[in-house]
Design a protein around this nucleic acid. Structure first.
Length: 658
DNA sequence: GCTAAAAATGTTTTT
DNA sequence: CATTTTTAGC
């Protein structure tokens, strides 16, 4: 076995190239210089949190810590990537070996490397969310056969329930009582579905998102050898956005860091916005319980926003319930007060935003320095139309994902079956595209369950005569692809597209648009040499753009464009000018959050996150009449959060048409 | 018995 | 608006 033996360098002999004292303020410096031992950093919005992390990594590397013993846990791969890039500008390329990414992707990589000693098959695959849903649907079908007369929770309800119980550490019974009390009599059947689901995953070497975390936890808890190896290899941990970790992630942090104790967690309880996923901002407070000797550093000086904006956000948070009271301050005095714009309807709101964006651009603010934020993806539909009409280039973050589009899932299924013959979920997708094949025929195929990749299913004589021609063509595709394995993902994707395009044309009316998406996918595929890596990366780190936003390969040069984004996806970003749209009761906060004060707390934090993204200009607009098709009511009140802040913090623009 | 088209329904936020 | 359930049709 190989082992690393590090001679610690004499601090007096290290020559630091960076003048840390000059570049950082006092608290930031303290956080950066505290390299050994646990450190909790409470960092307000815009307080130079990222800067602090970057300089801390630089400092560590400069003082001789091997980069490959450092683990950087961030919320998105994008954030990790950005951070490593900026660090390498400071100290050079050697930081490339830092292990960085989300909890899930880091867990994946650790399991790949060290999972075998726990009996984890080396070729396990990751299921994305839709795979899990599909699989749950499959086993749900089995159980439901015996209960045809009763109504049963649907697949997504079940999946959310399962995930909630795992991420919050509840047993199934308790979770059912809490999440879906109306189905309490069906507990037994529901639990049966879960156990079938998990059985199936084990049998087919599949891990879902939650499994990545739980399996690694089990590995570290129960396998002493693995734990030792991991503890020896990784000695420094930096965790960003700690307020958004859930029970499992907190546990994992503790397990990873319990030996070396060099764990730094950065967080802001004001910015906790993922509780729907089981995130618990109280993990910040619990951190000092895991690591009682931890030092606490607070960053409260805001370098991002003008005081006009900051004052309003501070005021908003005085209405928040229990939390660390903190008030951000800034040297950037003055600035325009945030603007409130009442609009008569969504269309007017869209036209206002588009026009104002163009005006700001005339004033010399680049499109890439502006963003439009909203609570939910669909709030921006009208705006998107308006932007397209005016030919304003934009990219949309959040909302409907590229990968969730039916045609993308379809074509990826065709690639997956090449890799894993027992991937029933993908086979189901592939087969149901063929004319004359429905659920029953598919079930028959899956029962035979052979390795059909050579096209041998044709000999099984399953399916009606009507399905025969379609199956023959599928056989040709499989044969062609299998003969060429291994092969670059891009070429395989081309084979699949050749086969799939005719089917796509039949299935969708809007096929030209969808075929374009397939081209985009093939650009992404071009960056990979290995099919497996391609598929895993797609599941773990999906391209953040939505279907309609112009999807760009990352190395392609970005055209200067406006960002429109859900608030969740805008986390950690900043722009010169920010528009918040649809700030209306019923949408933000959404009507379904109104009966629970805890939810309203989170909505308020969400508003806080949105507002603190702005450096100079902040516009908050609301259409005063929206007819909501779901509740069949008219929303007309501006969001309560504006009232909480108070008029004196705002200026108001009244729109006149013409 | 099985599929495919038509009606109904439920719709946040993300790894 | 897109998925899921129902119903009609083959």
């Amino acid at each position: 076995m190989e082992k690393e033996y590090r001679l610690s360098s004499d601090p007096l002999n290290v020559e630091y190239l960076i003048d840390y004292e000059k570049e950082l303020n006092e608290s930031q410096l303290e956080a950066v210089l505290t390299v050994d031992g646990p450190l909790l950093c409470i960092a307000g919005a815009g307080s130079g949190k990222t800067r602090t992390l970057i300089y801390r990594v630089a400092r560590m590397v400069e003082s001789g810590i091997p980069p490959d013993s450092i683990v950087l846990l961030t919320f998105t791969r994008k954030a990790a990537f950005q951070m490593l890039n900026r660090t390498s500008e400071l100290v050079g390329d050697k930081i490339r070996t830092i292990l960085g990414g989300t909890y899930h992707s880091v867990a994946y990589r650790l399991l790949r490397k060290y999972g075998s000693c726990m009996g984890l098959p080396p070729d396990f695959m990751i299921m994305d969310e839709s795979d899990s849903s599909d699989l749950i649907n499959l086993v749900r079908g089995e159980v439901i056969l015996q209960h045809q007369d009763t109504r049963f929770p649907n697949k997504n309800t079940l999946k959310d329930l399962l995930s909630a119980s795992i991420n919050r550490g509840l047993d199934f019974e308790a979770a059912i009582k809490r999440e879906i009390p109306q189905f309490i009599e069906l507990s037994e059947e529901i639990i049966k579905i879960f156990s079938l689901y998990s059985e199936y995953k084990n049998k087919n070497r599949l891990l879902d998102y939650d499994d990545l975390l739980t399996t690694l936890i089990t590995l570290l808890e129960e396998n002493e050898e693995a734990r030792k190896i991991v503890h020896e290899k990784f000695r420094y941990f930096l965790v960003d956005e700690y307020q958004d970790t859930n029970l499992l992630q907190a546990k994992l942090t503790r397990l990873l860091g319990e030996k070396c104790r060099n764990v730094m967690a950065v967080g802001d309880d004001f910015q906790s916005i993922y509780s729907f996923r089981g995130a618990d901002y109280r993990n910040i407070f619990r951190f000092s319980e895991f690591f009682p000797e931890s030092k606490i550093v607070r960053l409260e000086e805001n370098y991002r926003s003008t005081s006009s904006i900051l004052d309003a956000t501070n005021c908003l948070m005085t209405h928040a319930a229990k939390s660390f009271r903190k008030t951000l301050f800034t040297e950037r005095k003055g600035g325009e007060k945030p603007v409130i714009i009442p609009c008569s309807n969504e269309d007017q709101q869209a036209r206002f935003v588009a026009q104002r964006i163009l005006e700001l651009r005339e004033e010399g603010i680049s499109l890439s320095e502006m963003a439009v934020l909203f609570r939910s993806g669909f709030h921006a539909y009208q705006l998107e139309l308006e932007l397209q009409k005016r030919k304003i280039p934009y990219q949309k973050w959040g909302g409907f994902k590229f990968l969730e589009a039916a045609h993308i899932k379809d074509i990826l299924a065709h690639l997956r079956i090449l890799l894993n013959p027992c991937d029933h979920i993908s086979w189901t997708r592939v087969l149901s595209l063929i004319d004359g094949i429905g659920s029953k025929t598919i079930k028959k195929f899956l029962e035979v369950s052979g390795d059909f990749r050579n096209g041998s299913f044709l000999e099984e004589n399953i399916g009606s005569p009507r399905s025969k021609p379609g199956l023959v063509i599928l056989g040709q595709y499989l044969k062609k692809s299998m003969e060429n394995l291994p092969m670059e993902p891009a070429s395989l994707l081309n084979f699949a597209a050749d086969y799939y395009n005719p089917l796509l044309k039949k299935k969708f009316d809007d096929y030209p648009k969808r075929m374009k998406d397939l081209d985009h996918l093939s650009v992404i595929a071009g960056k990979y040499k290995n099919l497996e890596t391609f598929l895993t990366d797609l599941a773990l780190e999906p391209p953040s753009n939505s279907v309609n936003g112009n999807l760009k390969a990352e190395n392609e040069k970005e055209e200067e464009s406006l960002v429109i984004s859900t608030i969740h996806s805008a986390k950690g970003m900043e722009w010169n000018s920010v528009f918040i749209i649809c700030a209306i009761e019923g949408r933000f906060p959404p009507f379904y959050s109104m009966d629970d004060p805890e939810n309203i707390e989170e909505e308020r934090r969400l508003m806080y996150v949105a507002m603190t993204r702005a450096k100079e200009n902040l516009f908050i607009s609301y259409p005063s009449n929206i007819y909501d098709h779901i509740t069949r009511t008219v929303f007309s009140e501006p969001t309560r959060f504006l009232g909480e802040i108070g008029e004196e913090y705002f200026q108001k623009w009244n729109i006149r048409e013409g």
